[in-house]
């Protein structure tokens, strides 16, 4: 389980970094999304990977087997914020595309 999550974070993160370094807004936004997903997975796994345990302690649940609820709360907030930011950057890049007429990050095509 740990190996699976760790490699997922690594693959998503490295794809994200590669795409962020591209020169078109669309690929960069995709890269930011992948980067955000990998970071959210990383945050979630910081409460230790323990499948099958409840984060909320109720009656009838033994105290020895629960997972830390804080990372889950934190990652929820991070997902919401990340989602809002993604929506914003998409709208911004569309309006920049209309104004500049290109999807290049610098607002103009680079001469080769």
């Amino acid at each position: 389980m740990e190996a699976l999550i760790a490699s997922a974070i690594a693959v998503l993160g490295s794809c994200g970094i590669y795409l962020v370094l591209r020169e078109r807004t669309f690929t960069v936004i995709l890269g930011l999304a992948l980067l955000a997903i990998s970071v959210n997975l990383f945050l979630l796994s910081m409460g230790r990977v323990a499948p099958g345990h409840a984060p909320v302690i109720e009656e009838g649940i033994e105290l020895v087997s629960y997972v830390d609820p804080l990372p889950q709360a934190v990652v929820l907030t991070a997902i919401v914020i990340g989602f809002a930011m993604m929506a914003f950057v998409v709208v911004l890049s569309i309006s920049a595309h209309f104004v500049t007429g290109t999807d290049h990050l610098d607002g103009e095509e680079q001469s080769p």
Binding site: L32, L35, I81, G82, V89, G107
Partner: peptide, 20 residues
């Protein structure tokens, strides 16, 4: 708008690092 795109992308990457 062009400066804004640079600024937003840079800070979104910064936010990812912050969470990390």
């Amino acid at each position: 708008l062009t400066a804004g795109i640079h600024y937003v992308i840079l800070n979104l990457t910064g936010s990812a690092l912050f969470l990390l």
